[in-house]
Each structure stands twice: as structure tokens, then as C-alpha cells.
């Protein structure tokens, strides 16, 4: 794995079930994440995904790719266009930097409205774990 490498995209259908299941699994009972009528009263045409679910999906995207031994060190995300039912979010990632066994990946999750999420993930991938990282500048993938 080298700086500049692209991760294969992950397509996530944004269903009402995913939004509600994610909100409840994260213990987030804000009405805008499960009640369409109250969401409308707050200016949104429908319910929308909570940030904790987005965070969980971004984490999953990275560990799905780097394997179960990969360790998330940092996940920093910013939300933009909301994830609403019926949409599809496509997560893409680009390795920005590799430092020893640690990679920084820039991620984008785009839906029909624009970028739902942008951010960076720092992940440690111990040698021999799943998708290896290059051992140094210009080194071969292991």
C-alpha cells in the first residue's frame, strides 16, 4: 500500500431501516433520525442519518479493506449533504500518507445530493495483517 493508492468503493443503500437501526444502535433518539413528521417541522424533508452511524460506516469501510487486525487510531469526519432514505452513499478512499505501519486515508462518502461525509482516518496495520503497507518511502508492498 502506497500513498496515492485508491481503496475500492463501497456502495451503501441508505434505507429508512439503516438510518433508524444506526440511530438506535448508537442510542441516539433525536427525533430527526426516526420521525419524518418532526424532521419536516425542523426543515428537513425526511429523516436523515445521524453522525454516529456515518462514523461507524467510515470505520467499517477502512477495516473491511485493511482486515480485522487493522487498528483504527483516529477518525475525523465532517458532514455535508444529508443521507436520507432512498439515496445511495458511495464511500471512496485514497491513501494520503504512509508512515511505518500507519496509513492516513482520506475518505469521501458521496450521495445523490453531494458529499455526505469527508474526512481522514488514521489506521495502523501491523506487518502481515491483511492488506500490508509499504515499509518505507518507495518500498514494495508487503
Amino acid at each position: 500500500m502506497n500513498a496515492g493508492d485508491r481503496l475500492p468503493p463501497l456502495e451503501i443503500p441508505i434505507t429508512r431501516t439503516l438510518i433508524v437501526a444506526g440511530a438506535i444502535a448508537s442510542r441516539d433518539y433525536q427525533d430527526v433520525h426516526h420521525d419524518p413528521e418532526l424532521a419536516r417541522q425542523k426543515g428537513s424533508p425526511d429523516i436523515f442519518m445521524n453522525i454516529l452511524t456515518t462514523n461507524g460506516l467510515v470505520g467499517r469501510y477502512i477495516t473491511d479493506h485493511f482486515g480485522p487486525r487493522a487498528q483504527l487510531r483516529r477518525v475525523a469526519i465532517r458532514l455535508g449533504a444529508p443521507n436520507r432514505p432512498g439515496d445511495t452513499m458511495v464511500l471512496t478512499g485514497t491513501v494520503e500518507e504512509v508512515d511505518g505501519d500507519t496509513a492516513t486515508v482520506r475518505i469521501v462518502g458521496a450521495n445523490g445530493l453531494g458529499d455526505h461525509v469527508t474526512g481522514t482516518v488514521t489506521v495502523r496495520v501491523p506487518a502481515g495483517a491483511g492488506e500490508g503497507l509499504s515499509t518505507g518511502a518507495g518500498g514494495d508492498s508487503v
Binding site: 451503501i12 439503516l18 437501526a21 444506526g22 438506535i24 444502535a25 448508537s26 454516529l52 452511524t53 462514523n55 461507524g56 460506516l57 467510515v58 470505520g59 467499517r60 477495516t63 473491511d64 480485522p68 487486525r69 487498528q71 483504527l72 477518525v75
Partner: peptide, 20 residues
């Protein structure tokens, strides 16, 4: 289940919680 995350790191005797 909600995230569709099937990583084995989160199950079994040595399970950790998903960091996120």
C-alpha cells in the same frame, strides 16, 4: 448489525468494541 460490519475483531473471546 446496523453497520453491516462483519469484522471478526468484534466477536469471540478476544472481542474489542468497534472503536467508532
Amino acid at each position: 448489525e446496523a453497520m453491516g460490519d462483519t469484522s471478526p475483531a468484534y466477536t469471540g473471546p478476544d472481542a474489542i468494541a468497534p472503536p467508532t
